[in-house]
């Protein structure tokens, strides 16, 4: 099977999530190839899981002050702070029938590509079901998956650096005072690439591309005109709408 790889791009939150949905639609119609994409978020953003209540999870006032976008994802799972400098996000969009039916096994398969990328950088990483990747017992990556009408979409984030203070400020933990103890406790649970190797972000991205494409028939691709039009439409009409954002 032939895959398309869309190299590292930077978009705002709305377009980033809209691209994933636009590709899913286009792939279902047979107009796009299964796609692997890598991207950054500018401005930095908070994404929440499909089932989460936005006011439960996000400090909307702080987000407005800092210029951090807020978006509800199409996938379940938890709230994530996507720092422009501090992470690389990936998406895999492909027919669901090429993956194990068992959801945890399919997470394991795709997360395994990420683990291989980290190992190639000299970082001993492991998949922890349901959807996390750990290094020395600390979380370095989380992913979320959905399957809709025969198409599997999995996207996830790999932490390159850690800005815990901003993360706590934009997520609702900041209703309590952000204490040194909280920061220390988070450092015991979460880690990032910079704490384990000196690789630059570009090097990390290249390691991910190699690991994700290894053994596959892949070609570097671009967006089709229709995908671009549909993604912009979804960004404006769905992902930026208050009906979607404040769904819960």
């Amino acid at each position: 099977m032939k895959w398309r790889v869309i190299g590292l791009e930077t978009h705002d939150a709305y377009l980033n999530m809209a691209f994933d949905e636009a590709i899913s639609e286009s792939l279902r119609e047979g107009a796009s190839l299964p796609t692997i994409r890598f991207y950054n978020w500018e401005p930095s953003a908070v994404s929440i899981g499909y089932f989460q209540g936005i006011r439960d999870e996000v400090n909307l006032e702080v987000c407005r002050e800092l210029g951090v976008d807020c978006i509800r994802r199409w996938t379940g799972g938890g709230a994530v702070y996507h720092d422009f400098d501090g992470e690389i996000t990936y998406s895999v969009i492909a027919p669901a029938n090429i993956f194990p039916k068992n959801i945890i096994e399919s997470y394991g398969l795709i997360c395994g590509w990420l683990v291989r990328g980290l190992v190639s950088l000299g970082i001993e990483a492991e998949f922890r079901p349901v959807n996390d990747i750990l290094v020395k017992g600390k979380k370095i990556s989380g992913s979320a998956q959905t399957r809709r009408r025969g198409i599997l979409l999995q996207h996830g984030t790999l932490l390159y650096g850690l800005d815990l203070k901003t993360m706590f400020n934009v997520l609702n933990v900041s209703r309590q005072k952000i204490t040194d103890k909280m920061i220390k406790s988070a450092h015991e649970r979460v880690t990032c690439i910079q704490m384990h190797c000196g690789a630059g972000k570009k090097e990390v991205y290249e390691a991910l591309v190699n690991a994700f494409t290894d053994g596959k028939d892949c070609g570097a691709g671009i967006w089709s005109r229709d995908e671009l039009i549909r993604a912009k439409e979804l960004a404006e009409e769905k992902y930026k709408s208050s009906g979607w954002t404040y769904l819960r």
Binding site: F51, Q52, G76, A79, I103, N131, R148
Partner: peptide
Amino acid sequence: GDFFLFPE
């Protein structure tokens, strides 16, 4: 919540 459920 932050659980996963398919179909959503």
